[in-house]
Structures are given as C-alpha cells and as structure tokens.
Design a protein around this nucleic acid. Structure first.
Length: 555
RNA sequence: GCCCUCGUAGUGAAAUGGAUAUCACAACAGUCUUCGGAACUGUCGUUCCAGGUUCGAGUCCUGGCGGGGGCACCA
C-alpha cells in the first residue's frame, strides 16, 4: 500500500509542475501518532521550495491532485488532510482496514512475503566460531543476527546460502594442542579439555620464551601437516569442537549449508597474496608480505608473516575466492563483530585490486560486542561466558514457570535472541550477568505470551457461536497489523532485524491492550474480533519466525 | 598520535531530516466472579557542550569533552 501511495504522490507532484526526475525527495511513512492517520507524507514540505510556495499551500494543491482512490480502490480512503506545517495525512476507510485484516488472517505463512529479491542468490556468512575454543556469547550475537538477516532476505524471495567460516588452524590452535600435549591428552573428548588447554597454552606463550618457540613451531607443523601424531590430535580435537557447535546450532534453530575452514583457505590465500606481489598489489617488508592500506586511506596490515604463515587477512582473501567457486552468488554478506571493521576495510580494498567484481558485491555487516557490566570478556584469560553456560542458565530461569523443558528452552532462547535483536545491529549490548535477562516487559517472552493468549482464543472459538456485528471504527491493533509487509520489507532492505523487533513489540503491546479491554468470545462482534485475533496471530507468528524465535503453544 | 564508532529519563534501549522524542526496567498509585496477571491502566522523569546548515536537527557539517574499538607479523 505504501508503494502505491508513493506513486500517487509522485503523480500529483508532476501535476503541480514538478519535473518527473525531481519528485524523489519525499517519504510516505506510518505517522508516529495514530491520530495522524495510517500514512503520512512530507511531499509538500519537500517540494515547497522548488515550487516557490508556502508548504501549506502546496499541501492543499497536492491533496486536490492526489488520486489515492485510483491506486487503492474506490472505497479505500476515509480522509486526506493537511496538518501541522504541511504534512498530508491519509486515513484508510473502515473497509480498507478490514480488507487488510482479512488478507492477513487468510494468507497464513504467506502474509508479508515479498518478491523484490526473487532470483537473487545471497551467501551470508555468520557465527564463525573457532574450533578448540569455546563458542561464547559473541558468537551467539553473530548467529542470531545472521540467522535473522538470512530469513528476512529469504522472505523477500531470494535464495540464501548460509555459510560458517571456522578457524581450525592458526596460533590459537597451536596453543591448544601444546596445552593438550603438556598434560598428556592424546584423545580429547570434551570441550572443557580443549578450552583449558588453550588457556594454559596462551599463558605459557606469554610467560615462557621456550613455550613460545614450541608453539610457533607447532603452528607451522599444523599449516604444513608435517607431523602425523600432531595432526591426529588436531583431527580429534577439531571433531570434538565441531560436534559441540552443532549441538548449540540445534538449540538455536539455525543450520548451515556450507562450512568453510581456515585450513582450506590458508593455502590459496597465501598463494594469491604472493601472486599479488608481482602485480604491485602487495609488497614485501621486513620478511612479511603486507598491503599498504595508506594508498587508499587505510592502514597497513600483514597478510603473510615473516615465517611464511598466512594471517587472518590472507585467509580471508582465500575465502573470498573459495566462496565464489563453491557458491556462485549475486551478493555476499559477512556478519562479524565490529572490532573487525578495520580488518574488512583493508581486506576488501586489497580484494578490489585482486578481484573487483567479488569485492563490489561483498558487504561486511558489523555487530556490537556483548559487554559485561563486570568488565571485559577475554577468551585468552578464560573469563568468557560461553554460549552453553548462558543458554543453560536462562533455561533454568524459564523452568520456574515452565515445567516442560521444551517450552522452557523456547522461552529461554527467545529471550536471548530478543535481547540481541531488539537493538540496532552495530551497537554494543551491555549484559548484566547478575540481573541476567528479562522474561517480562520488553522481552522475547512478552511477544510469545501475547501470541499464546491469542491462539487460546482461536482454539476456544472453533466451537463458539458469537455475534456478527462489525465495529464502526477499526481497533488500533488492526491499523498496526496492516503495516507488517512494509516493515519486513524495510528490515530486509536495511539488514536490520531490530526494525522488525521494535514493530512486533508495539504489536504485542497493542494486542495485550485490546485483550484487556475487549471481550472476544460471546461478544456481539465475536466473528470480527476472531478475525482480528487470527490476523494478529498470523502476523506475530510470521514475525517471530523471521527473528528466528519460536512460538510456544503454551507457556 | 592517527582512523572508525557511540554519547537520548536513575538504568537499558527506540526513533527513514519531520508533527507533542517512543518503549521497558526501577519507583509510586491502581486493575483480579471476564477468552491465561509473563498482562493491563495511570504518575514521575531524557537528546554531552559550543557553533553551523535547514521551513524543520537526537539525526547532517565543524570544533570540543567523554566511553568503546582498530592501527606489522593474533582472529
């Protein structure tokens, strides 16, 4: 509807004598205040200067030329009014709102689906945990945001390939293997053994020059696979890690189509960086191969170390090509923590010289850190909150009200995901482990609970005999529901699940308010209210699905 | 030092250059014979500072101040 109104406004502006190419600078939006109608446009304010007239005057003229009825249907408008400094407020008719509600309640899972990205193949990389290290709450952020973005993009018609890139080689692995060797573990079976070994190795690396030398040597062994005993230990430890990750993915309701490993990007990455020296893209300096970021306003980073091992940077170059080869795509999105912004700027600059087409379609989406009120989290020091520990703790909390462990898990995961998705992806989340996280108010369970209550009504209503009167004015909840397709489209366009989360919270609040003040079953308007309840339930269910949050039947 | 980011009620957040800056927690006062109280209704309280652009700035620009991140061999 929004898009149709936009076209009508653009048409009216042309009627007022504005050149076709110059009508773009206005918005059609949902006004903050519901009393201002269902849609509003600032077109008159934006065009006033060009037309040399007062905004209110332009608005009056614009309203006369506005043919909203021809794009939305003859009985769709209740009023079009000029308000404030020159806004044009459009209020839909009772019939038009009712049509949207009927559509929402009838379409089921199809409600809100778009097609603007049909035919597009989008590869989305997220989560990226490192074997031999624990998956911590930072990975939970990447996974939650990446999964939701994937679903939002799929909802617009694209084919999404979910990718997970895991660091199974590199200094952290050498440290963990060194730690295992020191305590004589040849067959690791738990992730605890691995993370303890990593912390021990990391400590020794800082404290002891001998240990440092041993670990550096081990690192090279891993890259070159030159020692069968070491590689055996590596394979076993890696398998333990990966298996543990899969379990967490199951809890989170996420999955991957493609797994990439640093052990497979290291070789091609190193080779391509070396090839790039001859082309003048990279250069040698103090034995290392570097990219002079200064030539494009960035800073210099080492791509291959003086020992000949590739850094994260070279491996990401290798990854870019490997992705292209295995997963041909139109767009490539990488979701990682914001601390890597600088890294990706340099890598993409280098890639732009190496393979301009790949660099051009690649986009880095940074997310903030999950910071603790008690201080900084560091896996090197071992004071991280692991994904497992957090999930277990919140499930324990949810069990208080939900004896059913399955429901408790749905509530707990929903609460965690909501906390992550409610704010703009780039900003940090301050997480207080003492207060843990909220299961009421502005929270995941709040949305789930609103839905559970609506579904209960629908269940009772199946054998109910209620009235068929129709209320003369739309309820606030109806006027919110009809915006759902526009909201998900924008969230997908901007890669911002928080837009959807904010909307769903308002939707749940409005529903709860409706629920408290309006009796559905047995009321004179029962049939109509049921349809509203169904439309709400459909909208909330579809919205939660796009967030990756499940909808319990009861709680 | 340079670069990037963020400063919004006591706390955590929202807001596409638009209308009276929105929500939750906390605090306080209410709503339970109604479809489920993880709920609802109400009260209190907010854009770091100084300039600028604009009909209009939390949002854009410049300069401060403060937090976070990055800046040659970690990822």
């Amino acid at each position: 509807m929004e898009e149709k109104i936009r076209e009508a406004v653009a048409g009216a502006l042309r009627e007022l004598g504005l050149p076709a190419g110059q009508t773009g600078a206005f918005v059609v939006e949902q006004p903050t205040e519901m009393t201002h109608g269902d849609y509003a446009t600032n077109a008159a304010l934006a065009a006033a200067k060009q037309l040399g007239k007062r905004p209110q005057e332009v608005a009056e003229l614009l309203v006369k030329e506005l043919r909203v009825s021809t794009v939305l249907g003859p009985t769709s408008i209740q009023s079009i009014e000029v308000a404030g400094p020159g806004f044009i407020n459009i209020t839909l008719s009772r019939a038009a709102v009712a049509r949207a509600i009927t559509e929402a309640s009838a379409q089921g899972t199809g409600w809100g689906k778009g097609n603007v990205q049909e035919g597009q193949r989008v590869v989305i990389e997220y989560t990226d945990p490192n074997p031999f290290k624990a998956m911590h709450i930072g990975h939970l952020m990447s996974n939650t945001i990446g999964e939701s973005i994937s679903r939002l993009i799929e909802n617009e018609g694209a084919t999404v390939i979910r990718a997970n890139y895991q660091g199974d080689v590199g200094p952290h692995v050498a440290k963990a293997l060194w730690g295992l060797q020191k305590v004589g573990i040849v067959e690791p079976t738990t992730t605890l053994e691995l993370s303890e070994a990593y912390v021990a190795g990391n400590q020794a690396y800082e404290d002891s020059p001998e240990a440092k030398a041993e670990i550096d040597a081990l690192n090279t062994v891993i890259y070159t696979a030159s020692d069968t005993a070491v590689m055996d230990l590596w394979r076993k430890g890696r398998a333990v890690s990966l298996e543990a990750f899969e379990k967490i993915y199951q809890h989170l309701g996420t999955h991957f189509d493609q797994y990439f490993f640093e052990s497979e990007t290291a070789e091609p990455g190193t080779r391509m960086v070396h090839d790039g020296i001859a082309k003048g893209i990279f250069e040698e300096s103090e034995g290392a191969v570097i990219y002079r970021g200064e030539k494009v306003g960035l800073h210099t980073l080492v791509f291959v170390t003086s020992r000949g091992t590739p850094t994260y940077e070279a491996k990401d170059i290798g990854l870019a090509f490997l992705k292209e080869e295995r997963v041909p795509n139109d767009r490539s999105i990488i979701v990682t923590a914001a601390e890597q912004i600088g890294h990706f700027k340099v890598v993409l600059a280098a890639l732009a010289e190496l393979a301009p087409a790949i660099a051009a379609k690649t986009r880095h989406v940074p997310h903030g850190f999950l910071r603790l009120t008690s201080g900084k989290m560091s896996s090197r020091e071992g004071n991280v909150i692991t994904a497992d520990a957090l999930i277990t703790e919140i499930i324990g909390k949810a069990l208080v009200k939900n004896p059913d462990p399955h429901v408790a898990e749905q509530v707990a995961i929903g609460a965690i995901k909501y906390m992550i998705l409610r704010q703009a992806p780039g900003s940090d989340i301050i997480f207080d482990p003492e207060q843990s996280l909220s299961l009421e108010g502005d929270s995941g369970p709040y949305l789930q609970y609103a839905l559970v209550r609506a579904k209960k009504i629908l269940a009772y209503a199946e054998n109910g005999e209620g009235g068929i009167e129709e209320p003369s004015e739309p309820y606030a909840i109806e006027r919110l529901i009809l915006h759902y397709p526009e909201v998900v489209a924008r969230a997908a366009r901007e890669l911002a699940p928080n837009i959807l989360t904010t909307y769903l919270t308002a939707l749940a609040a409005t529903w709860n308010s409706f629920y408290a003040s309006e009796q559905v079953l047995g009321s004179p308007e029962e049939a109509y209210k049921q349809r509203v309840a169904r439309a709400f339930a459909t909208t909330m269910t579809n919205g939660l699905t796009l967030l990756g949050v499940s909808a319990p039947e009861r709680m």
